[in-house]
Design a binder for these strands. Structure first.
Lengths: 150, 150
DNA sequence: CCTTATATTAAGCTAGCCATACGATTCAAT
DNA sequence: ATTGAATCGTATGGCTAGCTTAATATAAGG
């Protein structure tokens, strides 16, 4: 299937980005729901980043996600309740808590990744491998710039 | 200033897109506020699209924006209250209303565009003209695909 | 007549943000 | 040792931008 050229789309890059994100997110949420995974896109992302960073302080995890620590709390609450993470006191700083994945999280995360990847692939099937790689590099660069307060 | 390579970012394109959009949007909102334009990003986008389409039915405007008609109502309410648009009965279909920009909207929209473009440019100053063009084409294609229900 | 379309209203949800605040802890300066 | 500032995670209430479900009156098309 080829893209339709007749639907008007924004002529402003920022509007396009915000719109694409919103629409793609809708797809991801539907896919997670359809797979009966009781987890949202944002919780999935939190879990994936926590896995990547290993035992990580909440403040650091929030920074890596580009969100406020306060906003992270509710995601962690849900993930902890679902038995996918646990919070433990940081032995090096008693103000802090470390976030660790539980054994149950690994297979779950594997499944989540598959569902999300399939949905993303379906949505972007008209893009070539090279284009996808370029797209991803651009987004990575942009995220870094935006997160590092240019 | 060059991008930092040490901040971890997501390795998933979808997460990157959603994050970039959120962060960029924050920049846009700040810029609009800083310029004391009493309008949000979404209202700006609605106004810009309404200008582009000319006298347009609400359902059609919503479709072009990729949002639900119901969601459009509150944006239009605000814009109408601000004197930037007016709604008028469609002579061809009495169920419908046409959205038209008021004379006050043109200079306002010009200012809004400037503020948004400056903010977007600042956020993406590390991208070359060619890269920006490529990025925009990718986003346009993605938006079209997502809006045309692939 | 029946079905679909249109704009609108209402309530509730998610994902973030904000301001404000708190107790506990840590760090740096004196 | 003391003090003030900063950090940390958490709680509260409220905001925005969309979505959802449900519903309504009116209009249009077959």
């Amino acid at each position: 299937m080829k893209s339709s050229a007749d639907a008007p789309v924004d002529d402003n890059l920022a509007f396009l980005l915000v719109t694409a994100a919103r629409l793609l997110r809708g797809r991801l949420e539907s896919a997670l729901q359809g797979a009966e995974l009781d987890i949202s896109t944002s919780e999935s992302r939190t879990l994936a980043m926590a896995q990547r960073l290993g035992a990580v302080r909440q403040a650091e995890l929030a920074a890596s996600l580009g969100i406020e620590p306060m906003s992270l709390v509710s995601h962690l609450d849900r993930l902890e309740k679902a038995g996918l993470i646990r919070r433990t006191a940081d032995p090096n700083d008693r103000r802090s808590k470390l976030v660790l994945l539980t054994p149950a999280a690994q297979p779950q995360l594997k499944q989540i990744r598959k569902v999300l990847d399939d949905a993303r692939r379906a949505a972007m099937h008209a893009f070539s491998t090279t284009e996808l790689a370029t797209f991803q590099v651009y987004l990575q660069r942009l995220c870094r710039d935006l997160m590092n307060d240019v």
